[in-house]
């Protein structure tokens, strides 16, 4: 077997629907440090190099919940990911050119790890991330929606994306009659989770 194909047999490239954090760095130190900081059942850490980023993103079904990177250059496709999918992005060190406004940056690793854990532990309207994948709702119910997982983790900053990117999350909330919806925040213009009053309720008030 050639070295290249052998490398792509590694577990970090296995397709999986569990919540994934793609840790992209040149030497792996970032991935190792993150693995030490995050409870393993909350998210899978995929420790990859810059040239493996696309393969790692493709392995995350439907997309990586979070990308954490380091170094002055971002993988070429990071901006594409940011412009199409609600992935939370954190960067250790100065933000790479072209993506600065959309990502969380910090010069200290403890801040980066703290940010990751804050996102993993966040609760919005009684909803929080379940172990591995999905969302735990009030009364012990569980649902799966990648866009809703992103909105909860990324709350309250939200995402610079069209509202239609959050249709599955909105559908889940509507079906379960949970009074929160993805909405555009007036101040930032980002899509965030916000309390929602149904038109029927508004009329009856």
């Amino acid at each position: 077997m050639r070295a290249g194909s052998r490398a792509h047999q590694l577990g970090v490239f296995l397709h999986d629907r569990v919540r994934s954090i793609v840790a992209v760095s040149e030497d792996g130190e970032l991935g190792v440090a993150l693995r030490d900081s995050v409870e393993p059942w909350r998210a899978l850490i995929r420790d990859v190099r810059s040239d493996e980023f696309d393969a790692a993103v493709a392995a995350c079904e439907p997309w990586p919940w979070m990308v954490v990177g380091s170094g002055s250059a971002a993988p070429n496709s990071l901006l594409t990911l940011l412009m199409t999918r609600p992935s939370i992005v954190a960067w250790y060190g100065a933000a790479p050119l072209g993506v600065g406004a959309r990502i969380h940056t910090s010069a200290r690793f403890t801040d980066v790890a703290g940010f990751v854990n804050d996102c993993l532990h966040r609760e919005v309207g009684g909803m929080r991330l379940a172990a591995g994948t999905g969302i735990e709702l009030p009364l012990g119910r569980c649902v799966r929606s990648a866009s809703l997982e992103a909105l909860i983790g990324g709350h309250p900053a939200g995402f610079q994306l069209p509202l239609r990117a959050f249709q599955s999350g909105a559908r889940v909330l509507r079906m379960l009659d949970i009074p929160w919806r993805p909405q555009r925040a007036p101040a930032s213009g980002n899509v965030v989770l916000a309390p929602w009053l149904s038109p029927a309720k508004v009329v009856s008030v």
């Binding site: 970090v12 030497d27 130190e29 899978l44 850490i45 995929r46 420790d47």
Partner: peptide, 14 residues
């Protein structure tokens, strides 16, 4: 050694 740990976790992230 973080390089050893990185290689292990790349092969089997869990």
């Amino acid at each position: 050694a973080f390089r050893v740990r990185s290689e292990i976790q790349r092969a089997h992230p869990r």
